[in-house]
Write a protein that binds this DNA or RNA. Sequence first.
DNA 1: CGGCCATGTAACAGATTCGTGACAAGAGCG
DNA 2: CGCTCTTGTCACGAATCTGTTACATGGCCG
Lengths: 230, 230
Amino acid sequence: MSPARAHILVVEDEAAQREILRYNLEAEGYSVAEAADGDEALLLLEEEAPDLVLLDWMLPGVSGIEICRRIKRRASGRDLPVIMLSARSEEVDRVRGLETGADDYMVKPFSLRELMARVRLQLRRARPGTMGARLQYGALLLEPEAHRASWAGHGLKLGPLEFRLLSTLMEHPGRVWSRESLLRRVWGREHDHDTRTVDVHVARLRKALRRAGAPADLVRTIRSEGYALG
Amino acid sequence: MSPARAHILVVEDEAAQREILRYNLEAEGYSVAEAADGDEALLLLEEEAPDLVLLDWMLPGVSGIEICRRIKRRASGRDLPVIMLSARSEEVDRVRGLETGADDYMVKPFSLRELMARVRLQLRRARPGTMGARLQYGALLLEPEAHRASWAGHGLKLGPLEFRLLSTLMEHPGRVWSRESLLRRVWGREHDHDTRTVDVHVARLRKALRRAGAPADLVRTIRSEGYALG
DNA sequence: CGGCCATGTAACAGATTCGTGACAAGAGCG
DNA sequence: CGCTCTTGTCACGAATCTGTTACATGGCCG
């Protein structure tokens, strides 16, 4: 399995559409979160820290365009690709969609194959680190290609889950991850585990870091919230 | 069969064309991977780690030119020759093709004989190690021409498959190869084997390396992922 | 201080993955 | 045909990984 699968947030009010998108995205190896309306979307943007957003234009609650605007206004928004989906085909809307900062735009009905291509395109554009190079945080280095992690040159001995956990933390240094988010991200959406499982694996990750000489507080605990790197 | 056959990715949407290219390339002793569109091409660039790309200009999804640009933008792109194929014959396109960084350019319909010559040329230019001289990683030396491999001067006794396996690993030191990738690459596309077969051959390769005095961890196991050299 | 909840972590059992010897089938060859 | 070398599969044990539990620790608040 890939070190850290890209995580995609699907914002779409129609359940059937969501299901289709989810099914196809997961078939491509992505992990998926779903939001049925604008409010949920805003919530999950924080909760899930997706790597890409598929955003329906027509939404109950906060409109797709408004959500897009908010994403792009955030400091981190520039790195978070948004692909707008719309039933409208008027040129004016296409223009407006892109003007709000969306990175791409597709008109329904669209080819799933083409959508997948654009998803891959945007991810590649925005997350070169995952596609080959490496992730770095201070002396902490992670090479997905070689499946290796090290602190100041000293290799870390990590199991598969610990590796994925560290990858996830390193993708958003400083971000606080709830145990539930980590379970969904690292273990997958079909997880059936206690949140304490996360604690144990964080402990194991810390032990590995300790052995390599990393400071004890590299992985911080935020009481009753979760964990964060640095 | 050549010791470390060059691996060629053919990107061409027309199935008949792909078949012709595949047939002729394999007759020349290359191993071939096929992509039917730009989408698939980007995926297989990662998956297959080809040594050369034959790239059709006209493609559904991501265009050939865009793919070429991406290949050449990557750090490793400079070592990966691209030969563009196009039905257009206008001079302007020829220029644009080369401007994106393609190493060569052929206009359809072309002579297969000439294409093969150019393939050979590009491979020779970009992979002097594999095409003639030798491949090296630390004290590990591989001479494809003589079909010999050695560690610090001490010869390795390898069967044909083990030799190909080692060649493949040495072409991308550090890179993690999944068992499926290795099966495709070493055993060929038409393989009908259990993934555990790879394990057995890795064990045999390791035994040969051990006898020659190489360190035990020269071929790493990445649990639930695959194998990597160094 | 004492109670309460959140967290750290050793330990255990179970599951998964891997290493490798054994063996049989096939190819090449004299 | 015998012999040797190579190869694919199997099976068993070893190594490693995982989730849960249990208990220890530590923060927070009255």
